[in-house]
Structures are given as C-alpha cells and as structure tokens.
C-alpha cells in the first residue's frame, strides 16, 4: 500500500512541474506589458524600465544566452523562469501588481471561500446523485428510471450561471427567503480559524454565524452542484447496472442475501470505483464553475479574482490563483487514486 502511494506521488510530480511551467508560459505570452499596465499608459519610459527591473521582467524567460557567451554561467541561469521557480519553492507568489497586496495574503482569505463552496457543492452532488443512480439502476427500465435519467440529463445540460440567476430571482428577489449574494451578512462576525465559515462557526459554537453562512452558501452551492449531480447519478446508474450483471452478484443471491444487502453491500462497493473517479474529475468542473457562480453570487473566492487578474494582466494573481486551483485538482485526483486502492484490493496488492 505505501509503495503504491509512493509510486503515485512520483507520477504526479511531472504533472505538477508541467503545470507550473504552463502557468509561467501563459503569463508571459499574454500580450501587453504588465509594467505599462501598472503605471498607466502615460508613464515615462524610465519609470517603466525601473519597474521591469524591479519585477525581473527584463530578464530573459528561460536561459540567458548572452550572459553565457560572456562566460557568466550564473547569469545564464538567472532567468524569469528560474526566479519564478525559486520563489514558488518558498511559497512566495509576489504581490498583486495593481493593489500591491501579497498574493498569499489574499489567497488565505479567498481560497477557503472557493474550497468551502466547491466542497459543499460536491457534498450536495454526491448525497443526491448517488442515491438517484442506485434507485434508477434498481428500477431499471421503469418510469422511475426514465424520469431520473432525463432529470439528471437536464442537470448536466444546465447553464449554471443561468440557474444561479433564476435562483436569485426566485428565492432572493421574489420570495426573499435567502440572500442574493455574498458569504455572510454585514454585522455577523465569525472568528476566523480555517476561514471556512461553516467550519469556523461550528468550532466556535457560533450558531448565529452558522445559520447566516449556511443561508448564503446554499444557493450558489446548488447551482454549482447541478452538473456534477447529474453526471454522478448517471455514472452510478450505469456502473451499478454493469456490476449487477456480474457472477458474484448471483453468488451473493444464491447465499440467501436479500435484495438490499446485495445492492448496498455487494454491488455498491464494486460500482463505486468508477463513481469515485468521476467525482475526482468533477472537482475540476466545480473549481472551474466557481468563476461563474462567484460572479453571480458575489462570492469572494479565487475564481472571480483570477478572472479579473487575467483581464487586468495582473500576473502574480493569475499565477497564484491558477496554481492553487490546478494543485487542488491534482491533489483531489491523487486522493481519488488512493481511495481507489482502498476500495479495490486488486490495486492495493499490486
């Protein structure tokens, strides 16, 4: 088992490095000079140059051939990329070009907001999607099955930003049951420990805060959960149907096990393997979808922040935000691989 985990860790490393590389490349390739963007178009050439010096923007991207030709091997490696990697290793992500706030500081506040939303949405997607899939499979080719499958296909087809808007219109504007946006009401305080408001409010037994935070998260989470919910339900169904055809299901029935034990004990564990994989992959959809939900619900997470960063050519923000999102995605899928080994002894013992 530990060998399996170590092997997985090693196979993740190239992907991680590749990701940092792509992020680096993207920032540098986006047209427009950040120094100019920062100082405004009327800045003097001199001040622009000084700024570029300060941020290392005047260094070559990867390797400095001219320095090498002069025999300066240190200078050869002193490039934007090497500096970037060095800084990454000590978690120095620089500061936002426009606002001059360290990226790490902002991340500490905004990242938990996105994570809280994404995980909460995934939680909803799982606790609704999996039972729907099981019920459909158990009632194959009945009206229940057709209805839930068409229903989950509608979920998969949902433009979530539109769904979010409809939710706001219905629940916030017309019925006024829930707030239209934000993470917490003005005046409600939650002591920050993890910066996940739901967790923090439970930890500090702050029930007013918990209620308020729940009310704020529910609408964006539902919007975000719709697509993964549909996908998980469909995956659960098809994988249950596959498993229910297996010989060992017949063996289990021949032993005298009842319908529900066969379904939930013998079939579900086998069927959960592909479902777990899809959950991991859907985490990507969720994190990506956060850009949209955060826009609509004014959720102070990293999706919207990175989006603004991209448009404003704020390299450090784009770099920090994308990196964190990609790493979370890779991390979740790494975790899924480990889960896989827990669920399937054939992988564990190989």
């Amino acid at each position: 088992m530990s060998r399996y985990i170590i092997r997985r860790i090693f196979s993740v490393i190239p992907t991680l490095i590749g990701v940092t590389f792509v992020i680096f490349m993207f920032q540098r390739l986006i047209p427009g000079d950040p120094a100019v963007a920062m100082l405004g178009e009327h800045a003097t050439e001199e001040s622009v140059e000084r700024l570029r010096e300060q941020f290392g923007l005047n260094r070559p991207l990867f390797l400095d051939r001219e320095a090498l030709a002069e025999g300066d091997i240190n200078g050869f490696f002193d490039s934007q990329y090497v500096r970037y990697m060095k800084r990454l290793l000590v978690l120095d992500m620089g500061e936002s070009i426009h606002r001059r706030i360290p990226v790490l500081e902002t991340l500490k506040i905004r990242f938990p907001a996105t994570i809280e939303l994404a995980f909460f949405a995934m939680f909803i997607a799982i606790i609704i999607g999996i039972p729907i899939g099981i019920i459909s499979a158990a009632n194959r080719n009945t009206p229940i099955d057709s209805i839930s499958m068409v229903g989950s296909l509608v979920g998969v087809s949902m433009p979530i930003f539109w769904l979010g808007l409809m939710e706001i219109m219905l629940f916030a504007v017309m019925l006024q049951w829930l707030p239209a946006g934000g993470r917490i009401s003005v005046g409600v305080e939650i002591e920050s420990i993890t910066n996940l408001y739901l967790v923090d409010s439970i930890l500090t037994a702050n029930w007013v805060g918990f209620k308020d935070a729940s009310q704020h998260i529910i609408l964006p989470a539902i919007a975000l959960a719709t697509i993964p919910m549909g996908i998980i339900a469909r995956m659960t169904r098809s994988s249950m149907l596959d498993v229910l055809q297996e010989d060992y299901i017949r063996t289990a029935k021949a032993k005298g096990l009842g319908h529900s034990l066969v379904l939930f004990r013998h079939a579900l564990k086998n069927a959960s393997l592909p479902v777990v994989t899809i959950v991991g992959l859907q985490m990507g959809t969720l994190l990506a979808g956060a850009v949209l939900t955060e826009t609509i619900f004014s959720w102070p997470g990293i999706g919207r922040w990175v989006y603004d960063g991209i448009l404003g050519r704020d390299y450090p923000i784009v770099q920090g935000g994308t990196l964190v999102i990609a790493f979370v995605f890779i991390g979740v899928n790494f975790f899924v691989d480990i889960m896989y080994a827990f669920l399937d002894p054939r992988i564990r013992y190989n």
Partner: peptide
C-alpha cells in the same frame, strides 16, 4: 468471477 473481488 463468482467471488466478489472487493471482500475477503
């Protein structure tokens, strides 16, 4: 195929 692979 008659024994369930995920249980001992």
């Amino acid at each position: 195929t008659s024994l369930n692979p995920v249980f001992t």
